[in-house]
Computed example of a mutant assay.
Amino acid sequence: MGALSDIRVLDLTQVLAGPYCTMVLADMGADVVKIERPGGDLIRSNPPFVEEPDQEAYGGYFQSVNRGKRSIELNLGDAEDREDFLRLVETADVVVENYRAGTMERFDLGYETLAERNPSIIYSAIRGFGDPRTGETHRQGQPSFDLIAQALGGVMEITGQPDGPPTKVGPGIGDLFTATLNCIGILGALHHRERTGEGQFVDTALYDSMISMTERAIYQQSYDGEPPTRLGNAHPTLFPYDAFEVDDGYVVIAAFGSNHWTALCEAIGREDLAEEYPTADSRLANREVLRGELADWMIERASNDVVELLEGSVPVAPVQTTADIFDDSHVHTRNMLYEVEQPGADRPVQIAGAPIKMSETTPEPRGRAPLLNEHEAEVFDELADDEAATADD
């Protein structure tokens, strides 16, 4: 049993933010029923593929964030399908959607309508700019994706090299962080419902979430009165906290604490630097000189040699590729690579595992992503049984 094995989620989401949120709930044991529009989630056909795209049910993008869910196909514009959806709402705990604001209302399936059928329902929305119910703005209704959120939220302005352009963070953090916060909101709403019986509306916006994620930039603007900008891999208030080039790649060092700074200087045979720059303020004020000293020492050595010398006494790590991650025994011991069937391919594939670990109900991926409408008969047979049981009561 998972921690959420008694929770049913109706998942109306697509692409990344919404599916990632409901994936986390599924990993924790929730029964997530993915309700797909005719033709399915538009990301089903997105690469990469193991074989030819026309031989596989979906690509890696869909597989990664839809594992462990059940799929049914409904057209919410059709009266019968709409009524089937409302029947499902009556037995559900949570509804999650990531359409533009107003989309569900056009089907007369907004929060208020669903709450009439099930007053305890938790209705959770993930949007680019939030929902009018929680604060109406001129941006609502505009399309938004991760790139838009990173640009507006200040992430790109503080990411990249000082002499380079604003840079998007590699992973889709606008989607993923928003999804994670939305999941937390859902769990909070479930706890509130357990105490009071009340359902509620949960709203998480990509733009809002990126402002939350750039928390350091926000307080810097307030305290200094100047907008922070790009520092490469450095930190504005800590040193050394940076990436250094070595003979065969890069390593990162986070030795800003005096204990770690002293250990670093001793390890590289530069005790004089620890004596001359004993405080965090002195190191920060002389960061360019000190960075040069460290860089000169690093460039002549291989990453493994640097890591072996410093590991255990100084926070240090190589900058790894995904190939390095696949070779790391730590990753395998922590079950962070999960093997699933890939329909249409002649071999299984690996996707990222569940990072939340619990002593009694550890989350885990619960099988591959579903085929489109794979579980229609199963879901509606269960619904009929539930309705029959309710009628008997």
Rank of each mutant, 00 (worst) to 15 (best):
N182E: 13
C183H: 06
C183M: 14
C183R: 09
C183W: 01
C183D: 02
I184T: 03
I184Y: 02
G185Q: 04
G185F: 02
G185R: 06
G185P: 01
I186N: 06
L187K: 09
L187E: 06
L187R: 02
G188Y: 06
A189V: 03
L190I: 06
L190M: 08
H191C: 02
H191K: 14
H191T: 09
H191M: 13
H192V: 10
H192A: 14
H192D: 14
H192F: 00
R193I: 07
R193E: 02
R193Y: 02
R193F: 06
R193P: 01
R193V: 01
E194I: 00
E194A: 13
E194Q: 13
E194C: 04
R195E: 12
R195D: 05
R195L: 12
T196F: 00
G197T: 02
G197F: 01
G197R: 09
G197Q: 03
E198S: 12
E198Y: 05
E198R: 06
E198H: 05
E198I: 02
G199T: 05
G199L: 03
G199D: 09
Q200T: 10
Q200H: 00
Q200N: 07
F201L: 14
F201E: 06
F201S: 01
F201G: 03
F201H: 14
F201C: 05
V202N: 08
V202K: 01
V202H: 02
V202C: 05
D203T: 10
D203I: 08
D203H: 01
T204Y: 08
T204F: 09
A205S: 15
A205K: 11
A205V: 11
L206A: 08
L206S: 01
Y207F: 15
Y207H: 01
Y207I: 13
D208Q: 09
D208P: 04
D208W: 01
S209D: 04
S209R: 05
M210S: 03
M210F: 01
M210V: 04
M210Y: 04
M210P: 00
M210A: 07
I211R: 03
I211F: 12
I211A: 04
I211G: 06
I211H: 11
S212K: 00
S212E: 09
S212V: 14
M213S: 00
M213F: 15
M213P: 05
T214F: 00
T214K: 00
E215V: 10
E215C: 12
E215N: 14
E215K: 04
E215G: 13
R216E: 12
A217I: 03
I218W: 02
I218Y: 03
I218P: 02
I218H: 07
Y219A: 03
Y219H: 13
Y219W: 15
Y219T: 15
Y219S: 12
Q220I: 12
Q220T: 14
Q220M: 15
Q221A: 14
Q221V: 11
Q221L: 15
Q221D: 09
S222I: 15
S222H: 11
S222P: 02
Y223M: 15
Y223R: 12
Y223Q: 13
D224I: 00
D224R: 11
G225L: 09
G225V: 04
E226H: 09
E226A: 13
E226S: 08
